[in-house]
Amino acid sequence: MYRTAANRLLHHASLIKNSSGSHLLRLPILRTVIASSRFSTTADLQTFPNQTFNPSDSSTSSSSSSTAGDDSRHGRKNPRAEYEEEQARVLQASLRHVIKFGWSEEAMIAGAKESGVSPSIVGSFPRKEAALVEFFMDDCLQRLIDRIDSGEELRQLIPSQRISKLVRIRLEMQAPYISKWPQALSIQAHPMNVPTSFKQRAMLVDEIWHAAGDEASDIDWYVKRTFLGGIYSTTEIFMLTDRSPEFRDTWLFLDDRVKDAFDLKKTIQEATYLAEAVGAGMGSSLQGFVGKVFQR
C-alpha cells in the first residue's frame, strides 16, 4: 500500500517538474494528491515544501485548463484501486454466504447487498464465480503468510513436521467450506480458470517450502515442489470425504504422505550414492583395463 501511495506521489511530483513555470498549475495537483492518497496531509505538504500559490498569475489560463484535464485522467487511475478495494469488500462479504449458496453468483449478490453496493457490480467481475474462489485462495495464502511470519511454534519443528503443519494450517482454512469445496475445485478446474488456479497453487507450495527453510535453487527445486503439490492435492481430496471428527484421518494421512516423501528422498539419495560408488568402481577398473591395453 505504501508503495502504491509513494508511486502516486512520485508521479505527481514529476508532473510538476515537467510543467514548471506556472504556479497556478500546482494547486489542483496538490489538491488531488491530498484527496487521493492515504498519507496524512502533513506528509503531502512535506513533499511540496516550497509551494507558493499565486492567484494573480493569469498568464497560464490555457495550460492550467489542460492540467485540469490531466487531473481527471489521474483521478481515473485512483478509482481503479478503489474498484479493487470495492471488489475485495464485496467478495469478502460473499464468503459468508458461500455455505448457503455455494460458490455462485447468488452468494456474490448477497455479499454485494451486505456491503451496500448494487449487486450489479457482480456482472463486472471477470469470470464470475472464479473471482470468488480465487479471492478466497489469495486470502488464505495471505493468512498463511501472516501465520508463518508471526509463528514461533513452527521454528521448533523439524522440516518434515513443519511441512505437514503448514499444509494442515492451510487446509484447515477450507474446513468451514468443506461441503461446498468440491464445487470450488470444479470451478478451478475449468479450462478458463486453470492458469490462475495453477499459479495460485504453485505460489502456495512455494510459500510452504520457503517457510520450511528451503533455499535450494537446483533441479531439486522442481522435484520438491512437485512432491509437495502432489501431497497437498491428494490430502485436499482426501479431506472431502473425511467424516472423522475434526478431520483426524486427514491429518494422519497427511503425516504419512509427508513421511513417505522424506523417506523416498532418503532412498533416492542412497541410490545416488550407490550409483556413484558403482560408477567409481567401474571407472577405475575401466581405467585399469585401458591402461593395460595401451601398455602393450
Binding site: 508521479h11 514529476s14 508532473l15 515537467n18 510543467s19 489542460s66 492540467t67 484535464g69 490531466d70 485522467r73
Partner: peptide, 14 residues
C-alpha cells in the same frame, strides 16, 4: 509520462 499526457490532451482539445 506527464508530457505525453499533456500532448494527448492538447490533441484532444484541438
Amino acid at each position: 509520462m506527464a508530457l505525453r499526457l499533456v500532448t494527448r490532451n492538447l490533441r484532444n482539445r484541438i
